[in-house]
Design a protein around this nucleic acid. Structure first.
Lengths: 145, 145
DNA sequence: CTCTCTGCAAAGCATTTGCACATTG
DNA sequence: CAATGTGCAAATGCTTTGCAGAGAG
């Protein structure tokens, strides 16, 4: 492993080794957004057939601990992972489940104010906005279940 | 089942039956905040020894569907349930895990603006503010793990 | 009485983990 | 070479579900 561009550098700076599995996982994360561990596994296996789910989870956990990956888990569903490019929040359609990244810089400011009032420091926040997207709103009633 | 005060009324108005299990679950939810299904089971069993976890989950799901219960699930941990008294958000200490309810009315306004820009309607939002609480900040370093 | 609920226990998923071998630095 | 990472498969934890009997309206 010597091909170390972009994100990979983050791993190198850490105390972790840069293996081909990790590089492939990072690449998968750079390509897509809101990927489940399962999806990441599929994409990684396209390049490295032998990779296991265990490795995906272990790596994702490391990447999160060094701040390279942002996790987003929303009631019930499997967690979604994506490269921690810049702070953003999520807009989720309650009907079709599609997730969109949105910028809501005020959310953090607001959160910090609240948190400080409660004596918290080291503040961060996650805002999940739910609703029905335009496409789903068009359909009169899915009348399912 | 005829003792129908407060929250119970909500169930009666719905198409669901008010059983003693459901009443006990509602009562448990009125007492505490951020209860896990397991905790609810314990509390309910104090009054009704035979109740099963399956019933807890089934009931919780019904209560959520008719808007009487608010679920809060935060990465990794088991979901937390509480009576849907009034809209509020959560402040979570990343160190000790304690959850506090906070009022952030601006969050919804903000979310609605964003959501509408994306063509969404029927908007709601959940804000999770994380940080280190005052008590944990006092301890120099937990030096754990 | 009919239809809905419940307890039980097994199933289902997402995620974690122990171990022996492969790899990295 | 020593330390770390990996694949495999079993284990775990939370939640869901099928079924036959119990209870609500």
């Amino acid at each position: 492993m010597q091909d170390t561009k972009g994100v990979d550098a983050g791993l190198l700076q850490s105390r972790y080794r840069l293996t081909k599995q990790r590089a492939a996982i990072l690449r998968a994360l750079e390509d897509g957004r809101h990927l489940s561990a399962e999806t990441i596994l599929e994409r990684v296996r396209a390049q490295l057939p032998g990779v296991s789910l265990g490795t995906i989870y272990r790596t994702l956990d490391i990447l999160r601990s060094i701040g390279l990956v942002q996790i987003f888990s929303h009631a019930g569903a499997a967690a979604k992972y994506e490269a921690a490019l810049e702070k953003h929040h999520h807009l989720v359609c309650t009907q079709c489940g599609e997730v969109t990244n949105v910028n809501v810089s005020e959310a953090l400011t607001l959160s910090q104010t609240i948190a400080h009032e409660h004596g918290f420091d080291d503040v961060d926040c996650a805002l999940v906005v739910t609703g029905r997207c335009a496409r789903c709103a068009d359909v009169p009633a899915t009348a399912s279940g």
